[in-house]
Design a binder for these strands. Structure first.
Lengths: 334, 334
DNA sequence: ATGAAAGCGCTAACAC
DNA sequence: GTGTTAGCGCTTTCAT
């Protein structure tokens, strides 16, 4: 258990200076075969491994980025994290995971951590409104942040979002096409971008279609909200034949109610949701959904952050297309 | 954009030495109110933030641990990761996320990374057998690793597992109690500990119960395997009335088949699964399951690793109890 | 092509 | 209580 060998030791063993070995290891130098071999031999003999902390300190960067998300246990964010890690790893950079549980002080804390150079950059994701602007302020005060999935108003950094408007429209058109005329929307928090946009796309696409939104219930992206809203909807019978859920979680809550009341989905009530991060094909019937591409959001997020870190200009906000996945929860009406 | 202030600057501004400020900041010193105030003022004025890399280099540790898992997008591992992060964070240590996708070279790579002091310790999780013993060798060559969830044979490090045997037994007893006599088990890979133990607990608990295992089909912890196995089972009609799925994923595959063949779960075929990481209460009917406590596994994992890092003896392998969650997928037979 | 030397910013003996 | 002095292990001018 003696101290691990350092570059110094390797250099000495190879009869060279630390500088040369360092350059060789970093590829900033092409060495004669013989010299290179000597170094390799020394490294192998000593079982040398570079110390990343020393490297970070010296270079002023750590080749590590942070991913801050509300909750890794949420399938949507878990998928997003998987994508982010995949692309980060491919680029040779490590991933620090930071769950905030949507607590503002934790979000600020992580942004702060970036400022301390803990990580070279941050992929930031939130799920609620920035009440007092503190988050936007913190973000704007830091370099190398990109916001993903949900907007932080007033933050002027690169952003990567799904095309929520398109998604809402896709849902609306599908419902109309299937013959539905009296629709409901159970959406997320009315004060955050994603929920607003999904609702907007949904209602705009309905214009002139003959269909109308009989009820629009906003709340949280939770099963609880889905449940309560569905109950309200059912209790105040408005002849709705189909409902558009703002997220998988909301859908889950809705499904509970529907099952409890023995209302057959895809028969007595049609349903379409947004996200498609869960295993919606396993429901009975399988649930039709607007699918977000977590892979593409993650890919673009990492790419954008890396460009940002290497000095590229702010790329503004980029939109990732969504996709309609038709399954069997929307009934074709006469 | 000038260089950020260092401890030196703060010290100078406060009229003290860097050492004193450092001690103060680390709490290894109680300063007179007046002096402390001066430091605080200087820090605030300069907007000073300590550089963690320098700190890590100097202290030889980084207060960061790594979590290596097969796939963060898998709900079970996502939950486990959430728990790990929660407890790590509570202990003031950061979490590096490392997904291996079950590729052996990546697993080795991460263990290697630990050796390089990238992180102070590693929480290691795998999902397949250690073919050639390379993984065990790498693990044994490193300090500060604890293995969670699935065993790595021959690795002699602290381990934290669910009580799979108990789980299998719980499933068996429940089935028997509900009047089932002809059972099947669709399990994970026969060559890994968790699958073996679940099967073992299941069959042992059946001894003398009058019930028997008409079929035991091992494969992978995947929906695909669940599907194929269920088809085989159904095609070779053996009068089985209930099946015990080795994991949620396996269950998912089974459910597809059951639905495709219009076999009503909880009526014509009873089902119980292991994990309960998905949203099993949303199925129709809700699925009865043996629930693993990802929270407790994560908690114990972090705690054990921290004790290990502070020099405690190897704590051997610890078992976390599982729990039977009765829902409605097991029919009560006459 | 290679080396010497000066940091990177912090911590930790060891003094006083 | 506080300061001095060495490092921690690597990178990087600047020489040669």
């Amino acid at each position: 258990m003696s101290k691990p060998p350092s570059l110094q030791h390797v250099a000495k063993a190879a009869g060279l200076s630390p500088a040369t070995v360092s350059r060789y290891l970093n590829g900033s130098l092409v060495l004669p075969k013989e010299t290179a071999a000597r170094i390799d031999a020394a490294i192998a003999a000593l079982n040398y491994r570079p110390n990343p902390h020393a490297r970070s300190l010296s270079r002023g960067k750590s080749d590590t980025i942070g991913l801050v998300i509300p909750d890794i246990a949420n399938p949507f964010f878990a998928r997003l994290a998987a994508a982010v890690e995949k692309y980060a790893d491919a680029a040779g950079i490590a991933l620090m995971l930071c769950s905030t549980l949507n607590r503002p002080e934790r979000e600020l804390d992580y942004v702060e951590r970036l400022r301390r150079n803990y990580v070279d950059g941050l992929l930031f994701t939130t799920n609620h409104q920035d009440e007092n602007g503190a988050l936007a302020a913190a973000i704007n005060a830091s370099a190398n942040i990109v916001v993903m999935d949900e907007d932080v108003d007033d933050a002027v950094v690169p952003k990567v979002f799904s095309d929520n408007i398109q998604g809402g429209a896709l849902a609306a058109r599908h419902l109309v096409e299937m013959g539905h005329r009296s629709l409901a929307h159970i959406g997320g928090p009315a004060d955050i971008m994603s929920a607003r946009e999904r609702a907007q796309g949904f209602s705009e696409a309905l214009a002139g279609s003959g269909a109308e939104i009989a009820a629009a219930l906003y709340g949280a992206y939770t099963a609880e909200h889905g449940q309560k809203a569905m109950e309200t909807l059912l209790d105040s019978d408005r002849g709705v034949t189909a409902v558009f859920a703002g997220s998988d979680e909301i859908l889950y809550g809705m499904m509970q109610v529907l099952r409890d009341r023995s209302i057959r989905v895809g028969e007595e009530m049609s349903v379409i949701t947004f996200d498609d991060a869960g295993r919606l094909e396993l429901f009975d019937p399988p649930i039709t959904a607007i699918r977000q591409s977590t892979d593409e959001i993650g890919r673009l997020g990492v790419e954008t952050l890396m460009r940002r870190m290497s000095g590229d200009a702010d790329l503004g906000t980029q939109r990732v297309p969504v996709e309609l996945i038709i399954r069997a929860s929307v009934k074709r009406l006469a």
